[in-house]
Design a protein around this nucleic acid. Structure first.
Lengths: 155, 155
DNA sequence: CTGCCTGCAAACTCTTTGCACGAAT
DNA sequence: ATTCGTGCAAAGAGTTTGCAGGCAG
């Protein structure tokens, strides 16, 4: 399992930062890393409470920036009011999102040219790129043709 | 001036859609098209009230989707809580944003390859692209080197 | 023990909505 | 005369924060 070792990693990470290792933080971390799809803060609260029901909404919101700030979690804003999160499983920072407007699913695609692009346009403006995000909104062909989205409710 | 003719265009646009031409809608439109930089809904309310002080926040929020839905205005979400708007001055839909994290300014850059990219990755997933957004977050070199951002407070 | 971390609930920000009045067609 | 559009204020959604008590170090 990857969870126990990742948990140890998180424990060390907290100690290293001078942050306390609490049962709530561990539960939130475990909950996040057990997920294979994107999730919201509210969903993370549910998942974490299933592990440790003392976890509160406030602690989830206070723990999320700790995890995103150190790249344990990636934050994805598709402009829908709420933010999505996902465990960082690879080191590739050049990832684009394709958001299906029909099934609301977020697909992640490697986009290696983004880094080059960011540097190119930023330097023209006298700026240094920090991060790039590329998002494609799209509609499902199968749903359009058959009325059924093959991915709907799969998760 | 481009405002009077654009205003006529908006008047016709409303009539065409079966929407009523009200003083508030015209004030909001004029306010938006007098701007050269990006603005928020709240700023637009201020600008519109300077023209017609009967304009309310609710009407601004109800008018914005009318204008964005017909590409009179572009909506830009840089993931900062509030959305930004900008009059559509050109027909190019392939525009990327470079957001300066120091001066909070949004620069717009043509990104013609985005369309190709959207089609390529979408088709692999059985999806049809609807729109793309590419955003680069960057920091100001001059600010870093001299402590002064050359663009700060210019607007 | 010290003070960081917690849950709770209230506050906050941005946006949307129900309602009765008012104005465009 | 019809409706559609409006202002107001309240409601909503998502997130943040002040506080008093609790637990990690």
């Amino acid at each position: 399992m990857s969870i126990p070792s990742a948990r140890e990693k998180f424990r060390k990470f907290l100690a290293q930062k001078g942050l306390r290792v609490t049962s709530q933080r561990l539960a939130i971390f475990d909950a996040a890393f057990a997920r294979k799809e994107h999730f919201t803060a509210e969903q993370l609260l549910d998942y974490a409470r299933a592990i440790d029901d003392s976890v509160s909404r406030a602690t989830v919101y206070r723990t999320l920036p700790i995890m995103t700030g150190s790249a344990l979690l990636r934050e994805i804003d598709i402009g829908s009011g709420e933010k999505f999160y996902m465990p960082t499983l690879e080191q590739n920072t050049q990832i684009a999102q394709v958001v299906c407007m029909d099934c609301d699913r977020i697909f992640e695609i490697s986009a290696p040219f983004m880094e080059w692009y960011g540097s190119t346009v930023s330097s023209k403006l006298g700026l240094s790129p920090v991060s790039q995000r590329l998002q494609v909104s799209a509609r499902c062909n199968t749903l359009r043709d058959t009325g059924i989205c093959p991915r709907r409710d799969k998760n």
